[in-house]
Computed example of a mutant assay.
Amino acid sequence: MSLTHPSGPGALRLMFPQWQGAAGPSTHQLLPGVDAHDTQLSIHLGPALLALMSPDHDGPTAYVPVSTDTSHEALATVDGIYARGAVVRQLREALRILRDAAPQSVVTFGGECSVSVAPFSHLASIYGDDLAVLWIDAHPDTGVPGDSYTGFRSMALAALAGEGDAGIVAELPALIPPAKILQVGLRQWKDEGIAVKERLGIRSVGITDTPDDSRRIQDWLAGTGATRVAVHINLDVLDRRDFTDTAGAATDGIRMADLARLVADVSGVAGIAGLTLTQHLPVELMRLGGLLRDLPL
């Protein structure tokens, strides 16, 4: 099995276009000029485009069914989580798929960040303390219910560490100890989740633009004793000079070449058992879709 591109009979490509973990009103504001309904569903479209442009996969592919219902009832905030009903149903279905397929490695093309919760928990149930997590993201994702932002994507990493909504945490087959988690590229230090991150003692490394930064991550990974690693990549960590179809991109992010080098360097220390790509928002395609609906096609 290739360390940087998990494949083969024990691997699974998981298509999980969940968008409900991104709280609606704030998401609408990210894409001016795009219909509010289309803005939410742009997160749903992103994973299919990621898969289309990716190398051929020689293992099985599974699809998590995701509702596209944007009614007020479907998106109701319950227990401090936006669209909690849909989030929980889709989490359960993803876990069922993983349980039935029993993959040794998982590549996830996802909508928002909470799609990593099911595959990373599944991998933790297989590898236990032999699994570490790199969370490459501009945001900490360690929020909890009761925070002002109610999207579950901001709570994903906290849930994996056993914090937050007790019902959701109880659904997970295994948790990730905070000492086995490293955040990379974090630059939103004013998020409410920072308090939970610091209380749990989750360590972080900033923008990785030199080989020295990679060595710090390699040293941390070697120090955990883990021989497997799951890597979460939120595309909002990228520098806007390289990529713009994501949320909150800025010119102080990780360059694409540095991200590729980092993942390759990490694979020299531990086998990559999980790799997630999230938050591809194909803004221009959504605008084009609006035009196509207005034309007599």
Rank of each mutant, 00 (worst) to 15 (best):
T70K: 01
T70V: 08
T70C: 04
S71F: 08
S71Q: 12
E73H: 12
A74G: 10
A74E: 13
A74W: 07
L75E: 15
L75P: 05
A76V: 13
A76P: 09
T77D: 08
T77P: 07
T77F: 15
T77E: 13
T77A: 13
V78T: 12
V78G: 01
V78I: 09
D79P: 09
D79M: 03
Y82P: 07
Y82G: 09
A83L: 04
R84W: 09
R84S: 09
G85V: 05
G85P: 02
A86H: 15
V87L: 13
V87Y: 14
V87R: 09
V87S: 13
V88Q: 13
R89D: 13
R89S: 14
Q90F: 13
Q90D: 14
L91S: 14
L91G: 13
L91R: 05
L91V: 10
L91W: 06
E93K: 10
L95Q: 01
R96P: 05
I97T: 04
I97L: 06
D100V: 07
D100L: 09
A101W: 04
P103R: 12
Q104N: 12
Q104L: 09
Q104F: 09
Q104I: 10
V106T: 03
V106D: 02
V107T: 10
V107G: 04
V107K: 04
G110V: 01
G111M: 05
G111A: 07
E112D: 14
C113S: 08
C113M: 02
C113G: 03
S114G: 01
S114A: 07
S114K: 04
S114N: 11
V115A: 05
V115K: 06
V115D: 07
V115Q: 03
V115T: 06
S116D: 11
V117G: 01
V117P: 00
V117Q: 00
P119T: 03
F120E: 08
S121A: 00
S121D: 00
S121T: 06
S121R: 01
H122Y: 07
L123G: 02
L123C: 04
L123K: 05
L123E: 00
L123Q: 00
A124Y: 03
A124W: 01
S125I: 11
S125D: 09
